[in-house]
Each structure stands twice: as C-alpha cells, then as structure tokens.
Design a protein around this nucleic acid. Structure first.
Lengths: 195, 195, 195, 195
DNA sequence: TATGAATGAGTATTCATTCAT
DNA sequence: CATGAATGAATACTCATTCAT
C-alpha cells in the first residue's frame, strides 16, 4: 500500500477543527483553513464537497471513534448496565477532555449540523445512541433501571445535559473542574435530585 | 405629527420570531421581517439598533415573562421545594408549548445569543436561574434534595436537557407528545434512571 | 414690520455652516443640523428645498455680503486700480478670517457647489467677479496693468490661488500666519516671482 | 493555475479614471467600474483594498510619472531657474492635456484625496513639490527671483491657480484654449499683473 | 492531483425626504 | 408654520466555489 506523503485530508480536518473552534463555523474562511493546512484553497474541494461537508466529516469521525470505543464497553459481559452507563459517560468526557477544540465545535456547531444534514447528522452518532439504548433496555430488563423511562426521551435528556455542561466547561474551564462535573453528572443521571 | 399607530415594535418582534423560526437567524432578511410586519425596512431601525438587537429583545422579553411568572411560584409559601421545581418546569413547558416559534428560536439561536451578548444574554434569564437556585438550596436545607449536588452544575444540567428535549419536540412534534416528555423529564430530574 | 421671534432660517444656516465645516457636506446629516438649530427635521424643508439648497444659500449670502462690500470699494473714485485690487483682496481675507467655518465650507465644498448649481453657483459670486473684472480693465486702460492678460484667465488664476492658500491656512492655521499669506499673495499677484 | 492575463489592475484604473471623471467619486459604483474594466466586481478587491484605495493609486501613479519627468528637467544643468519653471509648468499642462479624464479627477477629487489619505496624499506629490521648491530656491540664490517670497506660500499659490485653471478648462475646453491659458499663466507667475 | 486567480450573488444599514397630524 | 415618525432606495464588500492551467 502506497502511503501518501502527507495526508492532506487529515491536515484540512485538523485545521478546520481549530478554526471552527476559534471563530465559529460561519466566520471560518475556507482560504484560512487551507492556509493553515498548508494546501491551496482549491484543494479543499478535492477532499470535501463544500464547507458543510467538512463539518459533517468532523462529526462523523468523532462519533465513529466514540462508537468503536463504546462497542468494547457494551460487549464486555462482565459489566452491569449501570457500569456500562458509567463507562459510556467516561468515554464522552475523556474524548472531549483530550480534544478541547473538538468539544467546542461539537457544542457550538450542532445546530449547523442539524441544518446541513437534516437532523441525521451522523451514521455513527445514531449507532452510538442505538448502542446506548441497548444498555438502557438491558438495565430495564434486569430490573436495575426504572421501566417507565422512554428511551428516546432519555436519549435527548442525557445528551442535552452533557452538551450544555461541556459547553459551559469549554467556555470557562477554570470555574468548573471537569471531574466535578463528571461526578455530579453521573450522580444526577442515576439518582436525580431527590434524596 | 405622524404618531405611532398600533404597536410597530411588537409587530416587528412577532414577524421576527416567525421568520427566525422558519429560516434561522442568519438566513432571515431584515427586509422580509419588515414586510411581514407591515412596515418599511428602515422602520426596523427605529426600534432596533441592528439585527442582533432584535434577537436580544426576543430573549429578554421571553425571560422577563418567565421570570415574573416564576416569582409567583417561588413566593408561594404553601409549596414544597419539589412542588416548586415541578411548577417551574411546567412554566417552561407551558411557555414553549404555547409559542412553538419562540421555542424554535430559543433552542436554535442560543448560540447566536451567546455571540451577540457575550454569554450574558439576558438579565431576566440570569434572574430566572438565580431564583431557581434558591429553590434548590431550599430543598437541600430542608433535607429533601441531595446535598452534594453542585448548584451551577445542576443549572446547566437541567437547562441543557430541557433545551434538547424541546428542540426535538419542536422539530418533530408528532413523534414525542409534549406531555410525555414533561412527565419523563420531571421523573428523571427527581429520581434519575436507577430504581 | 413684524420681527420674527426667532429667525429659524438663519439658525439653520448657522448650524449648517458649522456642521458642514466640521464633517463635510456629504457626512453632514439634516437631522443633526436641525437639532443644532433647535428645529424639527421636517422644518428644514420649510426653508430649504433640499440639502443642496442649504449649501447654495450659504454661498449666496457669503458672496452677497462680499459683493456689497466690494461695491463701496470700486465706487470709491479716490482709489487707483491697484489700490482697489488690494482692497478687494483684503475684503476676502478679512471675511474668511472672521468666519473660519465659512472659509472651510467655501474651500472644501466648492466642488459640490459646482455639482449642484451647474457651475453658476451664485448670482452674487458672478457679480463680484464682474466687478473685479472692471477694476482690471480700468487698470489696463490706465496703463497700470499688463494689457495682454486675459480677464477670464486672471479670474480663475486669482481665485484658485486664494482658495488654495485659505484652504491650507484653514487646515493648519498656525503654520502660516494669515497676514504673511496676504502680504505674499498681494506681492505675487502684482509682480510675480521674477525680480 | 489560472494566471493573470493582460493587466487587470491597469484595466481597472483606467475604467475608474473614466467613471470618476464622468460621475464623480461618490456616485461612481464599483460594479460599474468592474463592468467597464471587463472584470467581475469581486476582482476589484483583489487589486485594491477598497474604493478609496483606487483613488489613492490613481494619484500616486499620476504624480510618480510627473515627478520622474520633473527630475529630468531639474537635473538639466543647462537650464536656468526660470526655464526650469517653464518646463515644470509645461510638464503639468502636457500631462493634463493628454489625459483630460485624469485632469478632471485630479481637480474634482482632491478634497476626497485629503479625506482618505490625511492630506499627505502622495509620496510623489510631495517629492514633486519639494523638487519644485529647489528650483525656486535656486532662482532666489541666483538673484533671479524675488527673495522675499515664502516657498510654502508660493507652492500653494501656484498649485491653486493651476488647478483652478485646469478645472475651468476641463469643464469648458472650448471657451479657453489651453495654450492661451498656459501662456497667460506663465506670464502671471513670472511678472504678475502690474506693468 | 494541485493551484490560486477569478467569479458574482447576496444584504445590512443609512439618511434625505415626505406627510399625517 | 411645525413636527418627527415613517419611508425605501441605494451600494460597498465578502467569500464559497469554480476552472484554466
């Protein structure tokens, strides 16, 4: 297999993540991304259909990675449903902790994602959520989770809250330590507010 | 002297909410808003400093209304903390149920709000959240709520989840009945997922 | 004769001279002139046909005044042609010295005057020039001035140089004392550069 | 790689001179200039920062050309100061005679030039004037010119009169033959009005 | 593949002027 | 005469995308 000298597509994605995080999707300029990636403006269009497509591919690769990592968790039969939920939350927090720019793009540009991809913004995002649903079902079947919880609602519940918390953290990382957020988040998901 | 007839500012806001909901803030054209409001393009600038200002005032009036309604709830000494939380959630759900366009603007353009108003997008939004915090504190003091819950984190937790759920509902109102969402939401907030 | 309580037209002209001098004709706003004159925006249009008309009237009254003063000079039979030229130059220098704002408008907006009034920007400006021409003719007849000087050319020669010198003085009044300018100017007009 | 064909910058400048002369700087539209130059609107901004920048570059190249031509005159040691003055005046008259549109832009938009470039509108204009000053000094030293003439004042004197005469000629070229203007002008500069 | 010069559609905002009172 | 709210035409500039090389 001939290995490309430089992986231009990767270079462009990385530059785009950085620029999108810094200036937002709308203000980001293709020419600026190209420059930072070290390619010509026109070359961007050899790898991406258009500007939206770059965002879509960023999301895809993000969730593909997360989905694959999730699989190793959910397939581990030694874990109880609640342990799997914990591990799933850790996956997400770890991913975004390690990639703050990706976090910012994720939380800020989701609306653009909805716009450009008609609310089905990623095959792997959907698969990730489906895999998550299986865990919930498992927990309900085993009597560990409350059975009157609607899976779709829970999905939006958990992702909305996680996104908002990460958003806040990304804006002011010093005010709320991520570990404290993670700990509180797990607790709230499991037990809610009432004693 | 030609005098303001009717309430042009209100007309413009209502047209703007509608257009923002339909096309999004960026694609909305001032001329289009003006036309729908039945005023001349230039007249928009008699009431609003610029396009951003329209969005800001939509948010302000939304949260001012919600805040004032919340006050009547939180000042009701007959209610327990958890009943206040319930009422607070109902307020929000009721507001957005009655104004689907406002809901869409609220969930879709929050990022723009952050951009245009430096993350402090509304005095009344802040006051609303502060009032909500008081209820949580009350619940913790009375031993009703778990005391190890961080108020700031809970704030972002609950608003993120509510926003995401309303978003989903606003996009596909038929898939998830709002009452079911409301019911599940209250349950999850109170008790979490675990039995 | 009933004297108007306040002379609004005069107020508007004075405000306009001030604003035109400060911001230039194009950037000057009617609303701003009206405000400074203490009248409503619409009232400006009771006294002036449009924005251009204000400028025209400023020029007219300027040259009307200068023309009338010139008449008292040229009709003075005790003065020789060259003394009349001297007095004419003094008139102009004195006028602009006493009204720096008018000077600035005069030198900066002459191009606009040409535009709005088709190069015949003032009846009195023309009359002033005609009266000046008479003096030149007188000087030529009496053998005091060079007879091969074209009157029209001399007219543009003298007014171009006077305008440019006043312009420079108005911009940086401290660098070139007006009296030195006046003295040099008279000398150059009379004797030119050669010894 | 699509490469610059022909000289688009030159095409744009020429179109701009023409349009500025016809309609004035303010009324000239970029789209119109672009069309006449045979390029797309956006292409104008590849060569010029903005509309003002076009005017600045027109002046720069005008005075650069004049300055370089002046150098060949002033360096010619065979010429007396007064011959140099004559040649300098000829340079200017020739330039504007050959480029009537440039003349009109020069005389009409000088005020705009002051506005956009802070009164220092051209390096080469300044150098041209400085070079002219040297000639005057030379003439004074050699006893040919009157020594009590202030150089700065003379500079504004001569340029004001020349500008005004050219202006008049550009507006109504038929009324005053340029050669007659040139001849009278040289005479007035040298000897003034008095016999 | 790669380039980057060229394209041209798209829009918020201003402000001279009007006119109902 | 006086008001000032309302009007709406008018335009520089950006930047995603293309395409000749």
């Amino acid at each position: 297999m001939r290995v490309k000298e430089g992986n231009k597509e990767k270079d462009i994605v990385e530059a785009a993540v950085d620029i999108f995080a810094k200036h937002g999707f709308h203000k980001a300029k293709i020419s600026q991304i190209a420059e930072q990636a070290g390619v010509a403006t026109g070359s961007v269009y050899l790898y991406f259909k258009n500007k939206d497509d770059i965002l879509i591919k960023i999301y895809n690769s993000l969730w593909e990675k997360l989905y694959n990592e999730l699989l190793t968790v959910t397939r581990n039969e030694a874990l109880s449903p609640i342990e799997k939920i914990d591990a799933m939350i850790d996956l997400i927090f770890d991913m975004f902790t390690e990639n703050p720019s990706v976090t910012i793009v994720f939380v800020n540009e989701q609306e653009n994602m909805n716009r450009v991809s008609g609310d089905k913004y990623s095959l792997f995002y959907e698969k990730f959520l489906d895999e998550g649903e299986k865990v919930i079902k498992e927990g309900i079947s085993s009597g560990m989770f409350n059975k009157n919880i609607d899976l779709k609602i829970f999905r939006h519940f958990i992702f909305g809250s996680i996104r908002n918390l990460l958003h806040q953290w990304a804006i002011t990382p010093d005010k709320l330590p991520l570990n404290k957020i993670r700990h509180n988040f797990k607790f709230l998901i499991k037990h809610g507010i009432m004693k």
